[in-house]
Design a protein around this nucleic acid. Structure first.
Lengths: 301, 301
DNA sequence: TAGACTTCATAGATGGCGTCTATGAATGTG
DNA sequence: CACATTCATAGACGCCATCTATGAAGTCTA
């Protein structure tokens, strides 16, 4: 017969009360069951733990020694359960965070600081993704949570929390006919040669305005980063559709940003899978709160 | 549901092999049972321990952390079992040894030395008993094993190992008619006034030769030690029947020792209860061996 | 000293659950 | 493309943990 924790729990209860009846009540079992369990334990160990009369119960010398051991095992077990509970609640563990370049850059430091504050025992692992991986590692399972720009692709059971939205603008060469316009329409943009993300997925489709088109876009170049896009644009390979905040982040050397009338705003969201560890949800919650509260360090200007 | 050691054992086995099928074989259970057990554990802990595909198994981050915990619990448990095993075999614990004054005095030091040598982790507690407690504390449960002179009384399930036997002699005053005789018969002793142990038990009966008598003995005095007996004898209260070795131990100031013809030899034995801890039997075994091997320090002369 | 009460052990019944067999689904492999 | 391997699921079975009922023994009280 295998000794189980229930034997130790029973033993410790009896050892502490020195009374089978009361110990049984504490354990929420019947007294004969407890007697049986203790007997099992004694048989398995090969030692007498209690000196029983019909009227009283006392620990034997061996029982006293074993009480220390049993208690130690149970304490160790409780510690393990405590730790697993902290893991379950997301207080303890590791969280792999992915972020797409240019997504919520203003807020990321505050989000991370707040999360680290609130969950000091969670090890954060940050990975930056470029437009070649617009899902921020969620599709491959490399990350647990990600700051990305929808739409996502290949992320089953994704839980998405939108953090902010902003206008989309057309980024054109300073020499481009659009360069000095106050705005352009989607219809004006569609025929233009366009610089797009690499690959072939719903995310790239989004930024080349595929949903507005009848015929395929004229993609003249592919770039995985804003810098690369802007360079391509600057040397006249075509225009590029980007979030408005890019204007702020990457300046205007050789390019101009022109709002696109009639195009829906684009968003930044924090995303995790439904079955991700709890800390992913915690991160998403904190990200949403931090983004809503402060607008981040004001680097505009 | 309560987490039991079998869950931890199952978890550790799977974590080590990273293979449900092989782990199940090691645990001697069927693979579906193991899957079920692991699932139970995961549910109870609220965390995913394994990342399972239909083709492979891997520990999650949480699983890796919990493996350390689970292993620690099992290690602690194994240590407890190891210790209880040592208690069961009598290698570890306490042994309460009682000895009757004058019983095997020559051999006791060697016995204790040998036992302490062989069982260094058993704490010996020695208690001396006089003729008021000829059972050496076995009857009251004060001791676990005792060096005594049979017969015993009130010790249920006594396991007796005879160590040695010796002649009985009559101890008489130097002025007593028997004093210069080379020997006396039982019949000669019976009518004499006699000094006996206190109380009323089979042991006292033995030394007053009750089994040889038709009528009660004429007990003139009671004494709980040899010294007291010899003093009573010396001042003429009567004779006393004692083991021959007493002559050697207590000298001859005012008394003489006369062999009793026709009286069976008396014995020294090591005794413990059937249900005594294993170390009691160990002690008895060692006592028998030491007594048989050496005759102890030679203090005769 | 007798009766009542307390406490632990025993006996027998029952039901929950741990384990089993059989089977399916998924996926890497020759 | 068929096969082998691995884990999950479903349903059945049987052990054993627990239960209720009762007994035995000792303590306390009147």
């Amino acid at each position: 017969m295998n000794v189980e924790l229930r034997h130790l729990r029973a033993f410790v209860a009896v050892a502490r009360t020195v009374n089978f009846t009361r110990a049984a009540e504490q354990l929420h079992i019947a007294q004969p069951s407890l007697s049986h369990t203790i007997r099992q334990l004694e048989t398995a160990l090969g030692i007498r733990l209690f000196a029983r009369t019909t009227r009283s119960t006392a620990l034997t010398q061996d029982g006293e020694r074993f009480l220390v051991e049993a208690q130690a095992v149970l304490d160790r077990f409780d510690a393990a359960m405590e730790q697993s509970s902290r893991m379950a609640s997301g207080e303890l563990g590791r969280l792999r965070v992915g972020y797409l370049i240019g997504a919520a850059v203003d807020h990321v430091p505050a989000i991370l600081r707040e999360f680290a504050d609130q969950y000091p025992d969670v090890a954060l692992e940050l990975t930056e993704y470029d437009f070649a991986s617009p899902n921020g590692g969620l599709d491959s399972g490399e990350t647990d949570v990600a700051l990305v720009r929808p739409p996502l692709d290949g992320v089953p059971d994704a839980v998405t929390t939108t953090l902010l939205s902003e206008r989309c603008v057309a980024c054109v060469s300073a020499l481009h006919p659009f360069a000095e316009l106050p705005r352009v329409t989607v219809a004006q943009v569609l025929p233009e040669p366009i610089v797009a993300a690499p690959g072939d997925n719903v995310w790239r489709d989004y930024w080349i305005l595929a949903s507005y088109r009848d015929t395929p876009a004229n993609i003249t170049h592919e770039a995985a980063t804003f810098e690369a896009e802007l360079q391509s644009v600057a040397i006249g390979r075509g225009l590029s559709v980007v979030p408005e905040s890019v204007a702020r982040l990457y300046g205007r050397q050789g390019v101009r940003y022109v709002p696109i009338e009639g195009m829906a705003d684009c968003e930044v969201a924090v995303v995790h899978r439904e079955d991700a560890p709890r800390s992913a949800a915690n991160f998403a919650r904190i990200a949403a709160r931090v983004t809503a509260e402060g607008s981040g360090p004001d680097v505009r200007g």
